[in-house]
């Protein structure tokens, strides 16, 4: 009986390796390659076409000197903070209501989630219409006799981002509610029974027992909302077009405008690199908490 040696590793699992080629190309060429390319070219003075003339941090200096960029960031911060808080709170409250073993649960859930199926363009246009001061809510309240009533968020530079926030929340809260509901359903029935036997009021059970148990769902929801916030683009384009003036600009729109409208590629690369940096700041601690802990 002779000894067999380990065959070449390369051709074992050959089909799996072939099947993984699209994934490898996407991961390495598009995701890694594309990202590195953009970061590198953010240090050039590319205008209409990418050029390899490196100008150091010029683009970044120009970026941080641009009022449009600063307004974009401010809007993103306001939109981000409020949409995070409201989506989580409203989403959880709605989920808790739906979890009360109510009738017509499916109907309620269907109604609360349907906006999520719609595109941001549709969402933005619908709310543009409802918030239209000449025909929408402001017009109706005035025609009911309250002549001085003013509610025109889309036409007032100071509050336009809150008008967008209303539409954004309408779109995404259903998703968060569904996630939270799944989380609530994952809680062991016995926990509820035990807390009832111990005589703990329902709100206390939610606050001190259930929510801590749903830590994972909350983190997922936060990451989900946060990564959505950074990408906000279509909603702005449809609802306000960045206006009035530049008062509702956001970074994603800044990037698009720089790259494809004002032929200022370098600015677009620098702005998108800043967006990447923001994501890294959000995702890295999360990934560390989620996956770093498991390894130990």
């Amino acid at each position: 009986m002779d000894a067999a040696t380990r065959p070449f590793r390369w051709h074992r699992n050959f089909s799996a390796k072939v099947a993984a080629i699209p994934m490898i190309i996407t991961a390495m060429v598009v995701f890694v390659g594309g990202t590195v390319w953009t970061v590198v070219y953010s240090f050039t003075n590319s205008k209409l076409l990418p050029r390899e003339k490196f100008v150091g941090l010029d683009q970044y200096e120009r970026l941080w000197g641009s009022s449009k960029w600063l307004i974009s960031l401010e809007n993103l911060a306001i939109y981000g903070v409020f949409s995070l808080i409201f989506a989580l709170v409203i989403g959880f409250l709605l989920a808790a209501l739906l979890d009360q073993k109510i009738r017509f649960e499916d109907t309620f859930r269907t109604i609360l989630l349907y906006p999520f199926a719609l595109s941001f363009i549709v969402t933005g246009l619908a709310w543009q219409w409802i918030l239209n001061p000449d025909f929408g809510i402001q017009h109706i309240v005035r025609s009911m006799g309250w002549e001085s009533f003013t509610f025109d968020p889309l036409y007032n530079p100071d509050i336009v981002i809150y008008g967008v926030l209303i539409a954004g929340l309408w779109h995404e809260t259903g998703l968060i509610m569904c996630l939270m509901l799944a989380g609530l359903r994952g809680i062991d029935e016995d926990i509820w029974k035990a807390s009832r036997i111990d005589g703990i009021p329902m709100w206390k059970t939610y606050l001190f027992i259930v929510i801590p148990m749903m830590r994972g769902i909350f983190i997922t929801a936060i990451v989900l909302i946060a990564s959505g916030i950074i990408k906000v683009y279509d909603l702005i384009v449809a609802q306000t077009g960045g206006g009035p003036g530049i008062s509702s600009e956001v970074p994603a729109k800044y990037v698009y405008d720089a790259m494809f409208l004002s032929q200022n590629l370098g600015q677009g690369f620098a702005a998108s690199t800043m967006m990447l940096l923001t994501v890294v700041i959000i995702v890295v601690p999360w990934a560390y908490l989620e996956f770093g802990g498991k390894r130990q």
């Binding site: 598009v30 995701f31 390659g33 594309g34 990202t35 390319w37 953009t38 970061v39 070219y41 990418p50 990564s227 950074i230 990408k231 970074p251 994603a252 990037v255 698009y256 790259m259 590629l265 677009g268 690369f269 702005a271 998108s272 690199t273 967006m275 990447l276 994501v279 995702v283």
Partner: peptide, 10 residues
Amino acid sequence: FIPYQVMLYP
């Protein structure tokens, strides 16, 4: 998780 904007032009 990378914003699409970063990969748009490449």
